[in-house]
């Protein structure tokens, strides 16, 4: 409260002579520079050299996404998944048998090494929970702003529609990264707390130290986030089609689920390599030594193609759309 008062006082300050003196000693240096001319000179409109990078808008957008309680709650819910898994396994005293067909990948290794909580949790959250989080951010991105009318305000600032779209896409991708890391970090932490941590035995048989294993966890989370970036592009496009954020969220989430169903039907296996979700769980290759990059590279390329197509569609839609909300 006291900050706000002092702020508004120094605002009025530059108008008067006495304030000018205090600016040098009390107010931050930027204020002294800014302390010329009040708002009285409407005609003295001087365009400043455009800031070419425009990171201010991106920062503002990220603050908007990560400052929102609902989004923080979503990240919190995602972080609960590894905790639930770890606690359940701890309470049950570990899987009864070494049954490779039972439960998600890596769950059998958790009792031997806590780091596997992170991997298991990413496998569990990737089909639905992480896509849901991305869908929420995507639906909010353009459709959300259109529904409350703030889209028109930001466009008349002016922010070019292309720039707005890129910033929006970046913020959705950032939320996907945050989601993947929320799961991974919570998994590592709870793994440390509840289970022994040591050198990790890889799928290829060898083992790596804890430090290397943590890097692998981070790489897996990054791969997962990159996969979500494909869905983010679809969500961005959906978000430009409607002024109802829930509709855009639903379309995005349903797309993710339907594609996974198609991916599970063997009769159409010929199209599987072109499906976005077909590549999502290939991060197991990061747990080999040496790492096998083939499938993941193909996954990244397919995702990149999806990003190209759907961001272009979103751009075509947003730049020609009448903003009448």
């Amino acid at each position: 409260m006291s900050t706000s008062e002092s702020t508004s006082q120094s605002t009025r300050g530059p108008a008067s002579e006495s304030a000018r003196e205090s600016v040098g000693s009390v107010a931050p240096a930027a204020w002294a520079v800014a302390g010329l001319g009040g708002s009285t000179a409407s005609s003295a409109f001087v365009p400043v050299r455009p800031n070419p990078l425009g990171f201010r808008l991106l920062r503002s957008e990220l603050r908007l996404v990560f400052g929102r309680r609902r989004n923080i709650a979503l990240l919190g819910a995602l972080a609960c998944v590894p905790i639930l898994i770890a606690v359940a396994i701890k309470l049950s005293g570990g899987p009864e048998r070494d049954d490779p067909g039972g439960g998600p990948a890596f769950i059998g290794q958790i009792t031997q090494n806590g780091l596997f909580v992170a991997f298991t949790a990413l496998v569990v959250t990737l089909p639905l929970f992480l896509p849901l989080a991305v869908s929420v951010a995507a639906g909010e991105a353009v459709a959300g702003e259109a529904s409350i009318g703030t889209l028109r305000n930001i466009l008349v600032v002016p922010v070019s529609r292309t720039r707005l779209l890129l910033v929006k896409y970046a913020s959705i991708v950032a939320f996907g990264v945050a989601g993947a890391f929320a799961v991974a970090i919570a998994g590592v932490v709870i793994g440390f707390v509840l289970f022994p941590i040591g050198p990790v035995t890889l799928l290829s048989g060898g083992s790596v130290g804890v430090g290397t294993a943590l890097v692998r966890v981070a790489l897996v989370a990054l791969y997962v986030a990159a996969m979500l970036a494909g869905l983010a592009a679809i969500g961005l496009f959906a978000s430009t089609l409607t002024e109802v954020p829930i509709a855009a969220m639903a379309v995005t989430a349903i797309t993710a689920v339907v594609v996974q169903i198609l991916d599970a039907v063997p009769q159409i296996s010929v199209i599987h390599p072109y499906l976005l979700t077909d590549w999502w769980l290939r991060f197991g290759d990061l747990l080999r030594d040496p790492v096998v990059y083939g499938d993941m590279t193909r996954g990244l390329l397919v995702t990149l193609a999806y990003v190209g197509v759907f961001v272009s569609l979103a751009w075509a839609r947003l730049t020609t759309k009448d903003v009448s909300s």
């Binding site: 302390g35 201010r56 503002s60 409350i148 930001i154 600032v157 002016p158």
Partner: peptide, 30 residues
Amino acid sequence: AFHPYLSGRANLARLDAGDRTVDARTSRRR
């Protein structure tokens, strides 16, 4: 039309952040 869960000041800061032709250092004062 503004973001309901942001303060008035934060809403203005958001719009100002979109303007590439202003000096960010004068944002608070303006």
